[in-house]
Design a protein around this nucleic acid. Structure first.
Lengths: 129, 129
DNA sequence: TAAAATGTTTTACAGATGTAAATAAATTAT
DNA sequence: ATAATTTATTTACATCTGTAAAACATTTTA
């Protein structure tokens, strides 16, 4: 079972890590705490769990001589890979695997800009043949 | 918090209930057990939890004179309502709320039939104006 | 009416999750 | 060096989930 399940709370952390690709615990905390109100320790716990799940890598080496340790995390899977895995299971679970119905739902519910609609239609054309 | 969270296992049960709208425990069991391999008791537990969550209604009244009790369940929310709620939280969680990216993903990953593509484009047209 | 079959309710239990406090270790400031 | 500060690790703990077994109740059958 490659790419273990990422939980709700963990996604928050993952998005921040993906945005930086390489980021220290404290930097993650600095971003996540304000927008969630979680305690810094909660964020640390999530980082640790993500490492245990094999989704993040952590460097334990000490930084330059006089710097804090402050471990650095990097993603082991791309955002797209994880999205893909979770999308598939969501599709199965909620829409019984019916992509068409899922798409219809998000189109109606998504108030897309005309721009986005045009772009999406272009994509669909590429797939017609 | 209307419509509490439906878990993976619970969705299986819910789809069966929605398909019938009004269905006895045993009928649910008859459908779910073969396709999941779960014990009948597992299905009953899920039904009970769904009632506790306020997602299903159960009739406890005895049936006709000589019939087994065999409680009857009905959904309190439509499939679409639940899909909607869960879709929104999925969109937020995994795609950071970016509908456009989500749609692109499912279009590419969904191997739609030309039929479905055509249908979807029609939908998009309706939304352009 | 007693046993067998069927349906219902109660209880269980380990692992996952959300959420952190308590404690220990390292670093910097005094 | 020692206290103060910052970072890291350990431990916690209630709730939710997946997954039933056990026990009880009702109905049918022998």
């Amino acid at each position: 079972m490659s790419v273990q399940k990422i939980t709700d709370a963990e996604w928050k952390v993952m998005h921040v890590v993906w945005n930086h690709q390489r980021i220290s615990a404290n930097e993650v905390i600095a971003e996540v705490v304000p927008e969630t109100g979680w305690s810094p320790n909660t964020v640390r716990t999530l980082l640790i769990r993500l490492v245990e799940k094999g989704i993040l890598h952590v460097e334990k080496e000490r930084g330059k001589e006089k710097e804090y340790l402050n471990s650095v995390y990097t993603p082991l899977y791309s955002r797209e890979e994880c999205e893909s895995v979770h999308s598939r299971s969501f599709l199965e679970r909620v829409f019984g695997g019916d992509t068409s119905r899922l798409l219809a739902h998000f189109v109606q519910d998504g108030d897309l800009t005309p721009e986005q609609v045009k772009e999406l239609k272009k994509q669909l054309d590429k797939f017609k043949k």
